[in-house]
Design a protein around this nucleic acid. Structure first.
Length: 572
RNA sequence: GCGCACGUAGCUCAGUGGAUAGAGCGCUACCCUGCGGAGGUAGAGGUCGCAGGUUCAAGUCCUGCCGUGCGUACCA
């Protein structure tokens, strides 16, 4: 990355200055460059002089000047200046910048990525209980998780995407009793769904699916419980529905991990509990089995096996993470959870530590709640599911692209207001539209040029010297750094902002700089073919960068937008 | 009570310890039919919740307080 190259130059300048006796020989801190807010301050700035001043003495500005004098020559580096209170500001060489257009085109869809690194990452996301359909909140987790997976892959990690299906435990019994009641109702029996059951209408749909497939096969005499296998089939139907909703959002998985599989035979559950016991973290008291998490710094102990003999959800989770860390041996594990689960983060990390894993390698990424607005009013109800809004309904109404873009737009730490009206707007007010339009416009320009027999072939990027051209190239070169940052901080919300920035830089360029000759009523612009070819290269490179950004977000990069009807200025 | 977050423009939100705190929407002007105007330019709008502290430098780190959300089960 260019930032590293420049940092190395600054570091070398310090070493050379010390060797020359111009600066006292002191230990050198890590040289990091930042991007100044003001463009006048250059492309990158180093605060090294200010960090050295305590050890070396002297004035920061003078130290910075010495660093500047010892910067090794480089084709990358343009101007270097010193600014108070001691910044060393660096500007990229314009000829090098122009040359990056060829570089971006050569990289193509691999642009801004990193070579493979030897790191295996597992990212588990959504993992909603299969007792109900996905909600908009689950959708946010799906988009955050899948986007992070894509970015980490682009940055060289080997990524496994996993969905943990909670198909064991008490909730499944409740689900089964509810479903069986619904099933019997379809055959005219006067049966009430359980008081603690799932009232949503989707349960009727599942029951109907089962009747449609196998008729009354599952019916037992009145008063008897559901037969063996009935609940499992119901769960399978639910999981399939969840899978389809996720596909509609552009999300697929490598592994669907069944909680039930932890308990098969002498499985992971037994192994994990045995390991905890060996290591001295299991105690019996009050008729239950406890994880003595206070021994690893927790506030309280937690129950593993209830006095009824049934394991808790927490025990399953321990076995599951035992499998991730100890058996499957991932270098890094990321769990994406809704913020309402944050109370479990600490004790799960404690469990990983107690098992002998490294809790630092487990990152639990929490995202805050989603509220949906329509006409400024908060939407609360779904007809089919009660007090939740279905992800499916949102996708059907605004489309997967808008869903993904909007879900990504906010930091996971912030609650998210999803404005349905804005997401459906076919205008520049809608950021998804604005960005996608930029891509479509690029495609239109390239094909228009081709119609005239002009292509980027043979274009000489050295002709790209206009400030708007260079600004656009600079914006494209942000992407590699951005992806690196997202992969390290796990904050994908920067991507939509960047996409909009890049689109703006393109529109500004296109507004200021003619790519093709044109003749209108008022103005005639003549662009030499050689210049057109060079600028078409820049346009094509912008397409590469913009499409890359959109694809990582899982948002489509359309070649054309549907034409808006003329004269249709009003909102519907 | 305790724990984890959040509090930045009218609204929704960005802001890796750096220089003059930004964007979109909304508002006010302008470019006037354009190589896709579904675009561009400019302006108004801020005690970064409050008070201390650390630092050459704090919206950013630390402490306390106020406000909001979530959690604090032998539920998942």
């Amino acid at each position: 990355m260019i930032r590293d190259t420049l940092a190395q130059l600054v570091r070398q300048a310090a070493i050379d200055a010390m060797a020359a006796g111009v600066l006292p020989d002191v230990p050198l801190p890590d040289v990091t460059l930042e991007r100044p807010r003001q463009p006048e301050h250059g492309d990158y700035a180093s605060n090294l002089a200010m960090r050295l001043v305590r050890a070396t003495g002297g004035k920061p500005v003078e130290i910075a000047q010495k660093l500047r004098a010892h910067l090794p020559p480089s084709p990358v580096l343009g101007e270097a200046t010193v600014a108070p209170p001691g910044f060393l500001n660096l500007r990229l060489s314009e000829s090098w910048l122009a040359g990056q257009v060829d570089d971006i085109l050569a990289q193509g869809t691999a642009f801004a990525g990193q070579p493979p690194a030897n790191e295996r990452v597992q990212i588990e996301f959504v993992s909603a209980n299969p007792t109900g359909p996905l909600t908009v909140g689950n959708g946010r987790g799906a988009v955050i998780g899948s986007t992070l997976a894509a970015v980490m892959e682009a940055c060289g990690r080997t990524v496994q995407r996993e969905y943990y299906v909670n198909d064991a435990g008490t909730q499944i019994e409740v689900f089964t009793r509810t479903l069986y009641a619904r099933y019997q109702q379809l055959f005219g029996r006067e049966v009430e769904i359980p008081a603690d059951g799932y009232p949503g209408e989707y349960m009727v749909d599942v029951a109907q699916t089962m009747r449609a497939a196998e008729g009354e096969r599952w019916l037992r005499p009145p008063g008897e419980p559901a037969p063996e296998g009935f609940g499992e089939l119901g769960i399978d139907i639910m999981v399939e529905g969840i899978r389809r909703d996720l596909v509609a959002l552009g999300v697929t998985y490598d592994v669907w991990f069944r909680e039930r599989s932890l308990y098969a035979g002498e499985g992971r559950y037994e192994q994990a509990m045995a390991r905890l016991r060996e290591r001295g973290y299991v105690a019996e008291k009050e008729g239950a089995v406890w994880f003595t998490s206070t021994d690893v710094g927790e506030d309280k102990d937690n129950v593993l096996v209830r006095s009824t003999g049934a394991p808790t959800y927490f025990a399953s989770d321990i076995a599951y993470h035992y499998d991730k860390f100890i058996e499957r041996g991932f270098d890094r594990v990321i769990d994406v959870w809704g913020a309402d689960h944050h109370g479990h983060v600490s004790r799960l990390k404690a469990a990983v530590q107690a098992l002998g894993g490294d809790p630092e390698m487990l990152t639990v990424l929490l995202y805050q709640l989603v509220t949906v607005r329509r006409g400024g009013e908060v939407v609360r109800l779904s007809k089919r599911a009660g007090e939740i809004i279905l992800l499916r309904d949102l996708i059907d109404e605004v489309g997967a692209d808008a869903c993904r873009f909007f879900f990504l737009q906010r930091s996971a730490d912030s609650t998210l207001d999803f404005d349905i009206d804005l997401a459906k707007t076919q205008s520049d007010k809608n950021p998804v539209f604005y960005v996608q339009y930029a891509h479509a416009r690029i495609c239109a320009i390239l094909s228009r040029a081709a119609e005239r027999g002009l292509t980027q072939d043979g274009g000489d990027v050295a002709l790209l010297t206009h400030p708007a051209e260079l600004a656009l190239i600079r914006k494209m070169l942000v992407l590699p750094e951005l992806l690196d940052q997202v992969s390290r901080t796990l904050e994908p919300h920067h991507l939509p902002y960047y996409a909009a920035d890049l689109a703006t830089a393109f529109h500004a360029f296109y507004h200021d700089v003619p790519v093709l000759s044109r003749s209108g009523k008022k103005v005639t612009v003549d662009v030499p073919a050689s210049l057109s070819r060079a600028r078409l290269k820049l346009v094509a490179a912008t397409r590469v960068a913009l499409a890359r950004t959109l694809h990582l977000m899982g948002v489509s990069a359309p070649e054309q937008m549907a034409r808006r009807e003329d004269g249709d200025e009003d909102d519907e």
